[in-house]
Amino acid sequence: MSARLESLVADFAARFGALPSSSEPGASAASGQVTVQMLDFSRRGLHWEAVLPAERVVDAGRWFAERGFALDTITGLDWLAEAQMEVVYDFFHPVHFWRAAVRTRVPRAQPELPTLSEVFPGAAWHERETHDFFGIRFVGHPNLTPLLLPEDAQFHPLRKDFTP
């Protein structure tokens, strides 16, 4: 773990008022708390990940963009048993060996969070795909229409209760 990476993570934690890392990532997201956790790259493929409330992901995206990160992808996850949906934002850096992820959870009954497409225009397609597969709505998205599913699709195939 390089000193620069550690100070970078400390900067993020200070900016977003993170609490000391929780042992269960994701557990505290719904209650509006922020956690930051260092990870072992050789086991997880990431250097660190943060859990944020949904309304702060755009600020977080801006923080990454200002430091030259690129958005790798956006991953949806359906936690049916907990009645929540999770959205994971992966970031990589084109120059430094820094891999990070930001996770947030939204209620399954009303899966909504703000769009990141104003910070990263590439997010627009990832969000359309996540909307296709999970029905998660990205508020403020310029064109939240089906990207990979048929234009009249009324279903979200990666929801765990989806049956074809």
Binding site: R44, G45, D72, T73, T75, L77, V88, D90, A101
Partner: peptide
């Protein structure tokens, strides 16, 4: 249990798999 990521350099660029 948990998330794991892995990226490789494919012919067209970065291919990343995230498994849960």
């Amino acid at each position: 249990p948990g998330d794991t990521c892995m990226a490789v350099e494919a012919a067209r660029g970065r291919f990343m798999v995230r498994v849960v």
